[in-house]
């Protein structure tokens, strides 16, 4: 029997994606911004120069200086400390809500796409209805009904993410079903569960990760917006949207109050979008190096 010699080893696909990712300047820059923000949020108790809720009536609406870098607000609270602590709430809500949305949406989407049939049609119809609501209106509605609390906020934002991930995972699963390997798995007697989550899921993960990074930005933005209109964690707990709102009341006397938390939101948005775009380019085999 002719022994066919395999070709010289080539770099494996996963490594080459990582390699491409590292050569993508935007992706690296975005990752640096986001990681710095996460580090600041996690380190807030040690980094923050003051207690974020401590009021100093003698220093109301203080301009930024060497003592209070970002100035102080209408209650004399240190804005830098509040932005750092606010990052904890804003990023936490964003990450947990997105993670919940990705997991729930992907599981439903893969199952729905794999089995098809009447259940699939119902899922698609429900998804279409949910997706027709703008994300913000949906979040607003849910928080208004459930009441403003950290958990309800996470639930509301996760619910807006679920249909988007159902649609994405379902579509990718349908594409995978067309490939022979799903039939090969079935003819080998593998269970449906194994085929869906050991074979189909890893093959659609690239696309899901790209979309998750973009949705994370969207979730953080929604949280900020809801906080801005007073539908987030009740005061005095600092969140980015809440600080912007407090700053808005004194926009003429102390524009820095709204400016610094806005800049923090902007930086995270840009960072996450750079990551999302970069990951998409890196995982697209047709994209130029």
């Amino acid at each position: 029997m002719t022994a066919a010699a395999p070709p010289a080893p080539q770099p494996r696909r996963r490594l080459s994606v990582l390699g491409k990712a590292l050569r993508n300047v935007g992706l690296v820059l975005g990752a640096v911004i986001v990681v710095a923000m996460i580090a600041a949020a996690l380190g807030a108790p040690w980094i923050a120069p003051y207690d974020p809720d401590a009021q100093d009536v003698l220093l109301v609406l203080g301009t930024p200086d060497s003592v209070h870098w970002f100035g102080t607000d209408a209650f004399g609270r240190d804005v830098l400390s509040r932005v750092l602590w606010g990052a904890r709430v804003s990023l936490y809500v964003g990450f947990v809500a997105t993670a919940a949305g990705v997991v729930i949406g992907t599981v439903i989407g893969v199952i729905s796409g794999y089995y098809g049939g009447i259940v699939d049609r119902l899922v698609v119809a429900a998804t279409d209805v949910l997706l027709s609501f703008p994300q913000l209106i949906m979040g607003l509605l849910l928080v208004a009904v459930l009441g403003a609390s950290l958990t309800n906020l996470i639930i509301a934002i996760a619910v807006t993410a679920v249909p988007a991930f159902i649609r994405m995972a379902r579509g990718s699963t349908l594409a995978m079903r067309e490939r022979d390997f799903v039939d090969a798995c079935r003819s080998l007697g593998f269970s449906d569960f194994r085929i869906m989550f050991v074979h189909v899921l890893p093959n659609i993960l690239d696309e899901l990760v790209v979309m998750a990074s973009l949705w994370l930005a969207s979730a953080i933005r929604t949280e900020s917006t809801l906080a801005f209109i007073g539908l987030s964690v009740p005061p005095p707990t600092a969140t980015w949207g809440g600080i912007v709102r407090e700053g808005f009341d004194n926009l003429l006397d102390g524009p820095w109050l709204a400016l610094f938390p806005s800049l923090a939101i902007l930086a995270v948005m840009i960072g996450l979008n750079m990551i999302g775009d970069g990951l998409r380019d890196a995982s697209d085999p047709r994209a130029p190096q």
Binding site: D180, F181, G189, H199, N203
Partner: peptide
């Protein structure tokens, strides 16, 4: 299924990459 198996036409599609 252990006794009845299948070989597919396109091996690049029938193997999980």
């Amino acid at each position: 299924r252990r006794r009845m198996q299948m070989v597919f036409q396109d091996p690049s599609s029938s193997l999980d990459g």
